[in-house]
Design a protein around this nucleic acid. Structure first.
Lengths: 231, 231
DNA sequence: GACGGGGCATTCCTATAGGATTTGTGTATG
DNA sequence: CATACACAAATCCTATAGGAATGCCCCGTC
């Protein structure tokens, strides 16, 4: 660290945040919006240099990220971004979503407060407003709102374990949205499906909410399989 | 490190395993069989001294463990074993198990090979043979077989994401078996319920397998609520 | 006897050093 | 021209040092 201290020993004590947390957030963001493509090696020393920190916090952040499935670690070879899905992986992911997300929708419907419902409405609204241009940068807002909608439903179950279960999937879902063949054409259909889920939640009908969510996941699966690239 | 190097720099190159892995396994075992009770602080430097390693691998192992929910981390205060469940936590855990484990049983039933079925039979057999004396040490074998049964079903779904989802719960389930009020008396009933799940799997009836698993979880919930201690 | 302050130990956190191994490159040889 | 070897660079992994903050205990004072 020669030129830029960039640390915190001289600055004010904003240092009340651990560097490993910062590194984790930074890497997660890079993974979520596609800056780090599947298969890329994530060098410990390298990212340490990039972020102007020592390898130790990077090591800790990567250990946490590994458990999300977004990076893989080989014992003495280092970390690399988890490889692209095969068709089988995608089928497994959708199967798992079908098991978990309709339950989340049902539970959320039974317990949601008006304020939480408003958050969901905002997510769907953002989804509709988000630009869906051909460029990645614009598409990002759409993806963010999509992910937010599903995550909020998981959180509004009030069940910490369902949140954990969804989180185990959520990152992979996001990665698939980016690289798995679901393209921008998906958006037109997906918006109405999200709206259907929201309608059922607003109506307070748990069965309908679960079914609408299940239908959404099935349709995502169907669209992706239709125009999925080769393995 | 004054007296015992205990490391690997002098020994033969068995060092082809990373120390952090060893520390992780060690801590996990301590958590799973009750040597580390809820609320206990897990000092980084302390465990490093205990295991004759430096703090760096311990730090990495704990970062991984945190994601399992078995230890909690407070930003600049360190790690401690996750606290005991409240009744609400327990209800949430059972709700999540009801959402996930019957699905696992159904999928496993549809796809399981004879060899995998034999593994399950062995787990149930071990469950019956395991001593259920009043001492913790003896009870351990029973708990291990119980956990193994459920984990094998998750793995035999052939769906890596359902395995992840179960893993997010599995550790907590095990911790609850130890500390949550489900006592040895549970064993007598649970064995027949496990047998019922196994019977359905052997019969190749997915619906029955899912229902048997759901019934098992519901009964575990019922028994625990019956004689649960106060919060 | 009760309360407050100072020093010491512990602990977390980050940086740095160095050993072991792999990888890549350049050169010499068949 | 292709192959093999050697050296250099990068990388992972572990240990150690030291700063910053917290907690604890003892002691002096009211």
């Amino acid at each position: 660290m020669s030129t830029a201290p960039a640390g915190n020993r001289s600055g004010r004590s904003v240092s009340r945040q651990v560097l490993a947390d910062h590194v984790y957030e930074e890497l997660l963001a890079s993974l979520m919006d596609g800056r780090l493509e599947p298969g890329t090696a994530v060098s410990i020393d390298g990212t340490a240099r990039d972020l102007d920190v020592s390898p130790t916090p990077v090591r800790e952040a990567l250990a946490r990220l590994e458990h999300t499935g977004m990076v893989r670690r080989v014992a003495l070879k280092g970390y690399r971004v988890a490889p692209l899905f095969t068709r089988e992986d995608f089928a497994e992911l959708m199967e798992a979503r079908l098991a978990i997300e309709p339950v989340n929708a049902r539970l959320a419907c039974e317990r949601m407060t008006p304020g939480q419902l408003a958050e969901l409405e905002e997510a769907v609204s953002d989804l509709k407003k988000a630009p869906r241009g051909p460029s990645f940068a614009e598409y990002r807002d759409y993806l963010e709102a999509d992910e937010r909608f599903h995550r909020l439903i998981a959180e509004h179950t009030g069940n910490q374990f369902m949140v954990s279960a969804y989180s185990a999937l959520g990152g992979q879902v996001q990665r698939f949205r980016l690289f798995g063949g679901v393209g921008i054409t998906d958006a037109e259909y997906a918006i109405s499906e999200h709206q259907a889920v929201l309608d059922a939640l607003e109506a307070g009908d748990p069965d309908a909410a679960a079914e609408a969510m299940a239908e959404h996941v099935r349709r995502v699966r169907g669209r992706a399989i239709a125009d999925a690239p080769a393995d």
